[in-house]
Design a protein around this nucleic acid. Sequence first.
DNA 1: AATACCACTATCTTTTAGGATACTATTAAT
DNA 2: ATTAATAGTATCCTAAAAGATAGTGGTATT
Lengths: 110, 110
Amino acid sequence: MKNKQKQIQLRDVQDVIDVIGGRWRGAILASLCDKEKRFNELKRDLGSITPRTLTKELKYLEMNKLVSREVDTSGAVTISYSLTEHGKSLEPLIGQIVAWGQKHRKVVLG
Amino acid sequence: MKNKQKQIQLRDVQDVIDVIGGRWRGAILASLCDKEKRFNELKRDLGSITPRTLTKELKYLEMNKLVSREVDTSGAVTISYSLTEHGKSLEPLIGQIVAWGQKHRKVVLG
DNA sequence: AATACCACTATCTTTTAGGATACTATTAAT
DNA sequence: ATTAATAGTATCCTAAAAGATAGTGGTATT
């Protein structure tokens, strides 16, 4: 493979790490793979995330077209977050991440 | 799936993001997928990384059993970094990351 | 009427990552 | 002998990420 191609690949890796990286983004996406969720539901799932951070990360993911925010005004206003089509295309990748993560834990501990 | 299982998955995602995350770790691993490399070779590949950061990241990756450091003292001392077996097990994942990254760029730009 | 839940926002502080820059010890090339 | 390359260290500094904590305005529950 040409050297230029390799540089592009490194950039791709850095881009993806950017969108799923950081302490929470990957976990938020993984949690939404399960099903659509509301703000506090996500917060509980994630355990120790602060509302400030969750808000910020959700906005980032919306901007990157991975997550959509829907408001339901029938009755009490509820807001649900779900993966967009593009977000769903991440599911296999997240699956592989989970699988490798389990293997990795064994290697590092064992 | 049970709730406890889901928590474990979220933790796995966070763990993996940790080992391949940050600005450089993923790119370093991707670069070593190609072939084993020396310190300055990696530095050139990665473009703008500083030696301080490269040293630090390589040590981290060594500690996590993903990269091994080998010293060759015949002639001038040369040091080469390569993926361990465990590190190599990341290759398919990195491949998928690159593929998704290319797709993602199109979605976000287009 | 009081309490509690929802979905946040605001402010302040701490932590961490990583850049900038200079330097070192060894070896190789000219 | 000088220059350049290798493989880093050592210090200092800054910017960004994220935690801690409190508060807000609405709805639902009892």
